[in-house]
Design a binder for these strands. Structure first.
Lengths: 241, 241
DNA sequence: TCGGTCAATTTTGGATCCAGTAAGAGGAGA
DNA sequence: TCTCCTCTTACTGGATCCAAAATTGACCGA
């Protein structure tokens, strides 16, 4: 791990996080001057950072006009899920015969925590209390942690990079967190995790593969809810579309 | 389509082609000054272009040392094929119900040409004549053209982008073109294309999917030959390892 | 009041300049 | 002769400067 890094890399990393997390909303226009003031550097490293983000598909350059954070379309979102489904299926298949008892134990630990959080979320929704954002974030992280074990064991860095790139395309869309009707999907998620874990444990790579694929694809319903919410959200600021 | 473009974009595009085609070999060190002289611009747009290539994974930055064209490792190459196999399977499945008679006719036309080229390649190899690079390139292009029809019909731009990114990771490795023993793989390729075409024509998305996946995966043997050749090739120039 | 034209301002893209770092050559000492 | 140290050189990363393009807004005429 190299301790040195360029300012351009640092800035790109920070902006990437902020875009992915939704702190910088889709459609926002990024001014080079503003960013250079914020990071207390000249525009040169800022521009290089923006080039990198553009290559990653997070922002788009309009020559002589500026860069704007790409807002993801309904089709893109659906497609991202398709890609994730295929690649997670692949990773799960590859990981199954490589799983050690320690790995399985880790999956269990994460899955137990995930189950608890799922119940908490459901209880909260049933009690009519306002959704706790921190709790939701924790649930989401536990969800990803489960899949991350699989990626780690599979040792497929390219697959991991692409799949994680695809899954983050909707982390930033915070709008959907508000919907209560998603709760049963959460519970389904939990059950599917358990099924995948059992298939892996049984050493059935094909079953694990199929389950992983269906797991991601079953988020289709969730996607549609998300899209509905997004459609209701106001248009983003910027140059006249 | 915007007719305007920045020099950084132009340069990145040209360099990308040259790296992918192998004109700039893996391991080569790219000097900013040299590139700026070649393209008759200052180093600024060159650096931005290099940032983009780095984000695409084609080159790697070493802070204060320079950029070098990434040479693909054996594991990366194998993984790229796995990714392609999954995504082409997906694209084929999605494309099958959307195929029009015109699309099928185009596939036939391309496939017919592909079959001819395959025979030519085989005849040439049998006659002991030295391989004709131009013929090989044409064969390769016909091969890709077949798959491109599927991508076009599937209308999955993200899948297409990722899969094409994965498949080009080895176009640049020209070494393997010299191997005669690959000829039977070529013929197999041809047969598989026909099978995929028939499955699509029959409207069986699942069969087409499976065939497409196996088609790419069957290149495993080919990959191993490539790796063998790469292993024999001399080390690349540059900083010590 | 509305639309169009033209100048002023803003902002980007590119060139040049400067500083800091890494590799390498050469010399001194063991 | 080998090793270590220093000094030079080359090249990158970042800052600043300049030109060109686009947006804004004011002014004018219908």
């Amino acid at each position: 791990m190299s301790t040195v890094s360029t300012k351009a890399d640092d800035i790109a990393g920070i902006l990437e996080d902020e875009i992915v997390s939704g702190a910088i909303p889709p459609g926002a226009v990024l001014r080079q001057e503003t960013l250079s003031e914020r990071f207390e550097v000249s525009r040169t490293p800022v521009r290089e950072a923006l080039r990198r983000l553009a290559a990653l598909g997070l922002v788009s350059f309009e020559p002589n006009r500026g860069v704007r954070v790409r807002s993801i379309s309904a089709d893109e979102l659906r497609e991202a899920f398709l890609v994730r489904a295929e690649l997670e299926a692949l990773a799960t298949e590859v990981a199954t015969p490589k799983m050690t008892p320690d790995d399985l134990a880790e999956m269990d630990r994460i899955e137990r925590r995930f189950g608890e959080l799922t119940l908490e979320l459901r209880d909260q929704a049933r009690s009519g209390a306002p959704r706790d954002a921190a709790l939701f974030v924790e649930w989401m992280q536990a969800n990803y942690a489960f899949h991350d074990v699989i990626y780690r064991v599979a040792e497929l860095p390219l697959v991991e990079r692409i799949a994680k790139g695809a899954r983050r395309t909707f982390i930033g869309d915070r709008a959907w967190r508000a919907r209560a009707e998603l709760d049963e999907l959460y519970a389904k998620n939990d059950l599917q995790h358990r099924a995948i874990r059992e298939a892996i444990s049984a050493g059935s790579a094909q079953a694990a593969r199929t389950l992983a694929r269906e797991h991601v694809l079953s988020s289709n319903r969730l996607i549609e809810v998300v899209l509905e919410t997004l459609g209701a959200a106001g248009r983003e600021p910027g140059w006249g579309q």
